[in-house]
Nucleic acid binder design. Structure first.
Lengths: 343, 343
DNA sequence: GATTAGCACTCTGATGAACGGAGTGCTAAA
DNA sequence: TTTAGCACTCCGTTCATCAGAGTGCTAATC
């Protein structure tokens, strides 16, 4: 059965109201609140919407709450784009004027901005280093047998990894290798460096195989091991919502969101899409069955390198969140570009 | 009034029991539970202990709960050192066998170990770079006008900071300066480097004043700006305890513990002491009025460079926590020393 | 035929009384 | 000095009651 205009209108009203109040919405309340039909009519339509799976009733004599199917429809077709107040966009812009020292600081600031403005929990993924181009590699001697590999990419992102080095390679040799690799692979994509490195290092630079292995891990593999690749902010914001007045639910949520590996995977997956909205059980994570995740990707030089997003209860204010994400996406794009002004 | 032997014994029983159950302890329960006096006697003693300020009564006809004064006495004089089971110390030791790549990883692992074994919230402060000796400084060119300063200390700790550089200084010059500073200041305490740097750089190395300023911030000042200096683990463990079954209390706690600046300051202050126990209102933080913080310091080459600790409800199991901290302190000392095997 | 007014019914959440349990303070006896 | 005994207090739970909000259904109305 198709949803006619009236059903859509009623459904939207219910979703809007429920997003605001978190209480089941009844027919009388709706008709009193400016709907042009009587409560009885609305009641009939609500019964239809329930059999169609868009609404649910917590118990016989309560109002209705939207189902996930309803949110899906709402997000895909019904919601009207909110636009931010001047004050909000000024506020948001303010976050990007500070901390422009390095990419990490900007992204941390982004997470803070998102969580404070949306009042939900914000996630920002640090840029995927693999899609960027190498600018500089520097090996710094630590102890005999160990060195610190500092990798800098064209996006201004740096990454340190401690690696094993054959004991017979001295500081000068490390420096020479650093320069050689920097010269040879500068402006190659990080993801491409790895394969070339294996082929060329052994011969040309005459370096031992286990050392190459070590270097490789510094260049590519390390981000998966490093838990700092996701910046979280406003995790406790969720405790404000009645959905989490139960401590055990709150705990489940917090425990899930602090699985940074999972969060990273989730964001990484989302980074190929301009925007994503994942509602309730569409989420893979056990602990997010009552949450929705909205993400946006960010780009450097036209290539998507990461994403950021907001987690809230399924009844989150999707329209507002999407507007904010869009705004942040723009701001972030400008700031990240400014790190590349050299080329 | 002095506390006689019997009062002490009763007080200890009450504290022990309350730590276990979180319920007010009554005289009958105590006498049933193996005390050698009748409930009436115990009752009289309890009344005395209450007027002396060691006990409090939530309401007229409830049992007694220990006051902060009682915990203080308990910690300072009464508690018996717990000893860990073989299994626990083996478990603990296990955490230190993994992740021995770099200092950061070890300390993150420490936080995890602490929170998982104690079931409280664990905090680990990254080592205070100032008290360590410089081993290597490397300036890596980013864009014209910016460079990445990588500082490595003898404790194997590295730190990256983006700094401003006069545009006329090229990559080779940066490399020269790096080598010069490394050669000149190697093995100086980081805190001493700063003052010497100002005096010498201008003349000997002929570098501009604003650049010196920039470098200084990379070498010393930066940790205060960097929020990653504290590793948190098990923040949600606290939600298990009845003290935090109220979401708003949980939120207050979580919000406090995530103020990493404050946590850093707290741990830094504690790092000059072998162990500290701070009970309830002895804490400076607003949000820790119902918590206790137990910390231990860790050393590198005999110098205390940082501290770590556990936060729990005031009725935490102090004896057990202190044993665990002592054990971790030892393990951590051994591991950190292993990073220095060079000298 | 679609809409709506009206009515009987249901379920929740708040309120208050009743009560058993655990604990106390006090007194008098051991 | 210690303890048995007793009257009393307070909490948490249970149960009944009741107002409020909402529903489904039927019959009247447009």
């Amino acid at each position: 059965m198709e949803l006619d205009q009236r059903k859509l209108q009623i459904l939207r009203a219910i979703v809007d109201e429920y997003i605001l109040s978190a209480n089941p919405v009844g027919s009388k309340a709706l008709s009193r609140g400016g709907m042009k039909w009587s409560s009885a009519t609305i009641r009939n339509e609500m019964a239809d919407l329930e059999t169609l799976g868009y609404l649910a009733q917590p118990h016989t004599s309560a109002g209705r709450i939207p189902s996930e199917k309803a949110y899906r429809l709402y997000v895909d077709q019904m919601m009207q784009r909110a636009h931010l107040s001047d004050e909000e966009s000024r506020l948001l812009y303010g976050y990007f004027r500070e901390h422009v020292r390095d990419v990490d600081a900007v992204l941390r600031s982004t997470a803070k901005a998102l969580s404070e403005i949306t009042h939900y929990t914000a996630l920002v993924m640090m840029p995927d280093i693999g899609v960027n181009r190498l600018r500089h590699l520097q090996l710094i001697p630590l102890t005999p047998g160990k060195a610190l590999a500092v990798v800098v990419t064209d996006a201004g992102v740096s990454q340190n990894t401690v690696i094993d080095v054959p004991e017979d390679i001295g500081p000068e040799e490390l420096d020479r290798i650093s320069k050689a690799i920097t010269a040879r692979f500068s402006d190659c994509r990080m993801s491409a460096v790895s394969s070339k490195l294996v082929r060329e290092l052994g011969g040309e630079l005459s370096v031992r195989a286990d050392f190459v292995e070590s270097l490789l891990s510094a260049l590519c593999d390390s981000q998966s091991r490093d838990r700092r690749m996701v910046e979280l902010s406003g995790t406790t914001n969720m405790l404000e919502y009645p959905e989490y007045s139960d401590v055990s639910k709150a705990k489940t949520f917090l425990a899930t969101v602090e699985q940074k590996d999972d969060m990273y995977r989730m964001l990484k997956k989302a980074s190929s899409m301009e925007f994503t909205v994942t509602i309730g059980s569409e989420n893979e994570q056990e602990g997010f069955q009552d949450c929705s995740v909205v993400t946006a990707s960010y780009r450097v030089n036209g290539t998507p390198v990461g994403s950021f997003g907001v987690i809230g209860p399924t009844r989150m204010d999707y329209a507002r969140v999407l507007s904010i994400l869009k705004n942040v996406q723009t701001n972030l794009g400008v700031v990240l570009q400014s790190f590349l002004k050299e080329e």
